[in-house]
Write a protein that binds this DNA or RNA. Structure first.
Lengths: 245, 245
DNA sequence: AGTTGGGATTTTGCATACCAAAACCTGTAT
DNA sequence: ATACAGGTTTTGGTATGCAAAATCCCAACT
């Protein structure tokens, strides 16, 4: 509606093949997709929810979102569907989408599941990490320490997520990685308020964990991660009066 | 199926309120929703995939599915979106939906994750099961034994799912239950071919598990479930020459 | 043979328009 | 206040159109 003429964020002469016949050029990178609109909308809405522009409980009217984003209702609906399956919004039949209202109980359950999955992940990772992997872990660890020193709450949460994410990739279990990714993204939402106070201890525990992984000490890595995630859970319960909102 | 004219499975004069003013009549049941069409389509497609009417790798053309089911493209698209997030189809941008092709590696990863989650679930359930819960578990166990005696492979898989599902509900952790539900539904797909040979041992192990839960022996329940799911995983690898397809 | 190169066709992805039914809102009469 | 009647908004779904991308098919060329 808004920008009636311009169709969207630069979809013009993309989608062309990279070159002509350099078969298996680099093996890695894909051909660069124009990014489906529903995906763009999904990312945009997720961002709006995470940074609280869209408040918990708020009613999301399809038509409004569509106009706001300059697209039609269809991609909005599809994005909302996905947002529901991943727990960001609740889709009440015949009433539409509402930003999910996180409860303390749910956060606790989420942190509990996360503890189980991450613990298993640490165990597997310790069993199969190469030296290069360990080096990468130390890099990520340092990035986190820098954010800690700079008192960068946002960067701290992000660095934490990166480190945990890389650890799950190491396991070689794609299903596990996907599930942890799902849970962690939601945990991140609740986690932000306690990132700062928890920071110091958490990154000390990370160091112990990486040492255990480097030594391929499966039992120890598992134990440390169990302790680490359990402490995070407790930190959430003992969090300051920033409880409500 | 093709019923071009008739719009759908009886949506006529539904959606009415149950009565007029008997507030909180039974407290339990919701108001009876007409069931969103996308949900109906989702169920239908999931069923078609599970029973192999739609073969792995097959290209699903929206227009064809829509005509086949007697609906428009929109609900079909929404159903396909959800089927993707739950791993039943792969949605390749600009190419459409393809029935997911399960690999042995993926099945193994799935069974691995399932083992972890179910083990944790068993631990929690053992800690908080009431006598009524245990009675219900025995009921479900008997239903499984009957299916086993009747050599009903389909019913066996279903009874197994029911028992595990009830156990996860006992934990009181909705997030955990949801995740296990997700994983189990997919495991079921791979599991069917080994349900029969695995049946006898599996249900014997179930009995032990229920006893441990009834005795609130947390450690034992956890151990039995770990063993149980690990055996299932092994059974999958040692499965007969029904390997491919 | 084999592989190139165009069309022609199909299919997706999105936009637009329209509609019934359900839910919501509001003002008025009780 | 409470209840009711009516108007408004919103969803959920249908139908249609269309550009871009992918696929298919077949003929021309080493």
């Amino acid at each position: 509606m808004t920008q009636t003429a311009s169709p969207l964020p630069e979809r013009g002469p993309t989608g062309r093949r990279t070159a002509k016949g350099s078969l298996a050029a680099k093996s890695a990178q894909r051909v660069e997709r124009p990014a489906p609109l529903r995906q763009v909308v999904y990312d945009a809405l997720a961002e709006l929810i995470i940074n609280r522009t869209l408040e918990p409980g708020q009613h999301l009217v399809e038509a409004d979102l569509a106009e706001y984003l300059g697209v039609s209702r269809q991609p909005v609906r599809e994005a909302l569907q996905r947002l529901q399956t991943e727990g960001w919004v609740d889709l009440r039949p015949a009433q539409g989408a509402f930003v999910h209202m996180p409860t303390d109980e749910e956060a606790d359950q989420l942190l509990g599941v996360r503890a189980v999955l991450e613990t298993h992940s640490a165990r597997l990772a310790a069993g199969c990490a190469t030296e290069a992997d360990v080096a990468r872990l130390w890099e990520l660890q340092n990035a986190g320490l820098e954010a800690l020193a700079a008192d960068d709450s946002e960067g701290l949460v992000s660095a934490n997520a990166d480190l945990h994410a890389f650890l799950t990739e190491l396991t070689g279990n794609a299903v596990l990685a996907e599930l942890i990714g799902l849970v962690d993204r939601r945990v991140r939402w609740y986690y932000t308020p306690i990132a700062r106070p928890r920071g110091h201890d958490a990154w000390h525990e990370h160091a112990e964990l990486i040492e255990a992984v480097a030594a391929h000490d499966v039992e120890k890595a598992e134990k440390i991660m169990a302790h680490h995630t359990e402490r995070t859970r407790q930190a959430f319960h003992e969090r300051p009066e920033a409880a409500r909102e």
